[in-house]
Computed example of a mutant assay.
Amino acid sequence: MIINPVNDEWLTSVLSALGGTPGEVAATLRAAGFSGGRGSGVRCPVALYVRAKAKERVPSASRVFVWSGSDAVSVRIAREDGEVLVRVTPPLAVSAFIEAFDSGGDYADLDDAGT
């Protein structure tokens, strides 16, 4: 039996802690040192942040895959005792940040293209 420390409640809490506005989400990611690629559900700064939090939470994971989009954030964790998939609708602030970041107009400092 898999005892799963990563579930809907945990993922929603991690996403909510990013901030209440798109600007606060960007500031949290910036302060934590996360940047990423525009238009990439895997390389989005939100996905990279959630991946780091999941790896902290489940150090025994052999693989952690995170996909983020404005309509859903998914975490898939593989461990010796099985695989777990968690998918939630992100809070509005996170969704709006992802849309703004992916559109290319806002948060250019969080875009690591060319680095």
Rank of each mutant, 00 (worst) to 15 (best):
M1R: 10
M1N: 13
M1Y: 10
I3D: 14
N4Y: 05
P5F: 08
P5C: 08
P5I: 03
V6T: 02
N7I: 00
W10T: 04
W10H: 08
W10E: 08
L11T: 01
L11S: 05
S13D: 15
V14P: 01
V14H: 05
S16M: 07
A17I: 00
A17Y: 02
L18H: 03
G19V: 00
G20K: 11
G20E: 12
T21L: 09
T21E: 13
P22E: 06
P22F: 08
G23I: 00
G23S: 14
V25E: 03
A26Q: 06
A26E: 10
A27L: 13
A27H: 09
A27R: 13
T28Y: 09
T28R: 12
A32S: 14
G33H: 12
F34L: 04
S35R: 12
G36S: 07
G39C: 12
G41P: 02
V42K: 11
C44Y: 03
C44V: 02
V46M: 06
A47I: 02
A47L: 06
A47V: 04
L48R: 15
V50C: 09
V50T: 07
K55G: 05
E56C: 09
E56Q: 13
R57L: 13
P59D: 14
S62T: 14
S62E: 15
R63Q: 15
R63L: 14
R63E: 15
V64E: 14
F65R: 10
V66P: 01
W67S: 15
S68G: 11
G69I: 02
D71L: 11
A72S: 13
A72D: 08
V73C: 10
S74V: 11
V75S: 07
R76F: 11
R79G: 05
G82P: 03
V84S: 15
L85G: 11
L85R: 11
L85E: 12
R87V: 13
V88P: 03
V88W: 06
T89F: 04
T89V: 11
T89A: 15
P90N: 12
P91I: 03
P91A: 09
L92P: 09
L92K: 12
A93W: 00
A93V: 01
V94R: 01
S95N: 07
A96N: 12
A96E: 15
F97V: 01
F97Q: 01
F97S: 00
F97I: 00
I98G: 02
E99T: 13
E99I: 03
E99V: 08
A100I: 00
A100Y: 04
F101P: 01
D102P: 02
D102H: 09
S103R: 09
G104I: 06
G105P: 03
G105F: 09
G105D: 10
D106C: 03
D106S: 13
Y107Q: 02
A108H: 07
A108P: 05
D109R: 03
D109I: 04
L110N: 02
D111C: 00
D112T: 01
D112I: 01
A113S: 13
G114N: 08
